[in-house]
Amino acid sequence: MAKTLFELKGVYFSYLGKFPALCGVDLSIPEGSRVSFIGANGCGKSTLLQMLDGLLFPDKGIIKAFGAELKENNFNNEKFAREFRQSVGLVFQNSDVQLFCPTVKEDIVFGPLQLGLDKQEIKKRLERLVDILEIKDLLDRAPHQLSIGEKRKVAIASTLIIEPKVLILDEPTAGLDPLTSRHIIDLLIQENIAGKTIITATHDLHIVEEISDQVFVFSREKRIVRNGVPSDILKDTELLEAHNLVHIHSHRHKDGVHIHAHTHLEHHAQE
């Protein structure tokens, strides 16, 4: 049985002590798995991801990572902080947040430099990633000169270069064209095959089945209402509808008006 990487028990969190973001979350994530969080806007997915990355800490409840409890004080210990940051990488939803250096190259190498990796090793990793993501031409450019898709690739590269055991992604395909989305999904699948745990928050139901073994559905009450394998979750249109993940859609199809839940999945193939 796979080792548990993250374990959350009764986790509550609120911003400024008055805006609740998570209201009693329990879950566990095994090593090497692929996990997705789905839910409506503002249901707490991004907050949870930042918590898994050790950037936010529960007001109440316990969060354990790699067997140890995650507490803010632990990060004052340089050894602990370094090991944790080397093990867990987060790709932020807004790439402009993540790309804060004057050039793409500096942004990509920022992480390993802070973690004290050897410069030759950093260069080697950079070359490899640049080839995989096809971003060689972007290296000397400023992040503000890039398109959304390019920014997202660079943000992913800036996290992957650390070679974390766990890769957390917040809406990795939001706003991207189909080809770039495909490229990113393929990359995530490859990284999982290579042994990384992939944790994703997304609205894009198209990609859920491909990038997850387990799906957690968040309610607007900021707690998990259901979890299971993607095929079961995605079939449950009532559940998806109740949590703003699909909408009822009516259109003329073949000989008559066709009404169904609009999941953007292959509903016609099932007829």
Binding site: Q50, D53, L55, E78, A81, R82, R85, Q86, G89, L90, F92, N94, V97, Q98, F100, E106, V109, F110, G111, P112, L113, Q114, L115, G116, K119, I122, S158, T159, I162
Partner: peptide, 19 residues
């Protein structure tokens, strides 16, 4: 605040290092 979180996430520990 978000940028600072992104820096922390990639191992920034108050002493910036550059290449």
């Amino acid at each position: 605040n978000q940028v600072y979180s992104a820096m922390l996430s990639r191992g920034y520990m108050a002493e910036p290092k550059t290449m």
